[in-house]
Design a protein around this nucleic acid. Structure first.
Lengths: 212, 212
DNA sequence: TATTACATGCTGATCGTTTAGGATCTTTTT
DNA sequence: AAAAAGATCCTAAACGATCAGCATGTAATA
């Protein structure tokens, strides 16, 4: 498939370096807050080199979104759907995967969350449709699990499946964002554990919480 | 206190118009994605006029953060701490207040969430310390409620109070963000209701959910 | 020799910010 | 009460810096 010439290998490596640096800058300074000059400076290349590999700044973000989709979302879905067990087992596996990925690849993991917030009402056709697609796929995946959990009597059937799926995503995104914001006042493992407990059991006592 | 001359009244109105337009643009396009020209164009004024009221773009954001703090956070804390009732009553009042505020003033409500994400790793001293202050005050408020709920036997004492407070904020921020992103595929009331149920009772059946 | 990876150096546009001055309202002086 | 002086809100035009992007050249590989 790919010619393994020395040039081609170097090209691949350069592309990877560009994407890593760009993800880092996009996540920490935003899309508009990151200049092409800042990216090239971060990896010790010139603009000419960057534009030999990517046709535009837009193209850079689209490549990162694709990377997020393939390395995080698609991988997540594939792994979780292979889990032998009930819906709650799958959700646990979901959080395990997400926590592991976030630890090793925090910036890519945060990319969709942060950048989609920046463009939330921008009317940028290309980005909008990509983010929409991603979150739709994400929600469909969770919808299936929630539906399954309801059938297994593990998830409250009073919950609207569609909305619950989006709310789980929202919780996850919120936790990621808070982790990025307040890493210095939070302990990772405790945070993950708290997140888990709140999502599965809520605030109340585990053995039959009373309502207000 | 304030002289109610015609000029002063006009000035106040202009400042308010600038802040409203700026909040709208910041939330939808990000801080760096919003130009001074875009702001002035949105309200039909010139740059000179804007710089007569605000000394810099930075100053604009700081003013909006202050506005968020006073109109949302301080108001929220004052109202909820006046509630006669247990911790869960207070949390319900918290969500009622937040939902009402978000409905009437969505953009100001989203400001802290979105812009703090954009600057999450920027090392911008002024903004960082402001956001840190805001979220600390927010968390302290929720910590008190969680602590109270534990003493009242309404909230699981196994939860770490500090972390639970930050997680509640994270959930709320995540839901706000998702609401901004996917308003077209979500129904407001159902979303709020689902958020409430998940936070209070989790995914499981209300009458004693089983663990995995 | 042909192709590929990158450097150099530049483009017009746009960025945040400043300046000079006009128009209108307020205060002071006559 | 009328006019002069001052304060205030705003416009128009421009500033230097930086933006994304591109044309052209060079050096190394194939």
């Amino acid at each position: 498939m790919s010619p393994l010439t020395a040039k081609a290998i170097q090209s691949q490596k350069t592309v990877a370096r560009i994407l890593t640096a760009t993800a880092h800058l996009f996540v920490n300074h935003g899309y508009h807050g990151t200049s092409i000059a800042a990216i090239t400076k971060a990896i010790g290349l010139t603009k000419g080199a960057l534009y030999a590999h990517f046709s535009s700044k837009e193209d850079l973000l689209l490549a990162l979104i694709k990377q997020f989709e393939m390395e995080f979302l698609d991988q997540l879905i594939a792994e979780v759907e292979d889990v032998k067990g009930n819906a709650l087992d799958k959700l646990h596996h979901y959080f395990n995967f997400a926590a592991n990925f976030a630890e090793k690849n925090r910036e890519l993991c945060l990319l969709a969350t942060i950048i989609s917030a920046e463009f939330s009402g921008a009317g940028h056709d290309r980005f909008d449709s990509e983010f929409r697609r991603i979150y739709f796929k994400y929600a469909r995946f969770l919808r299936r699990i929630v539906e399954e959990g309801k059938l297994q009597g593990l998830i409250d059937p009073a919950l609207d499946t569609h909305t619950a799926a989006y709310t789980i995503i929202a919780f996850h995104d919120g936790v990621l964002l808070q982790w990025q914001r307040s890493r210095d006042v939070l302990e990772g493992p405790v945070f993950v554990k708290t997140f888990r407990q709140l999502l599965f059991h809520g605030l109340g006592m585990k053995n039959g919480a009373q309502d207000a």
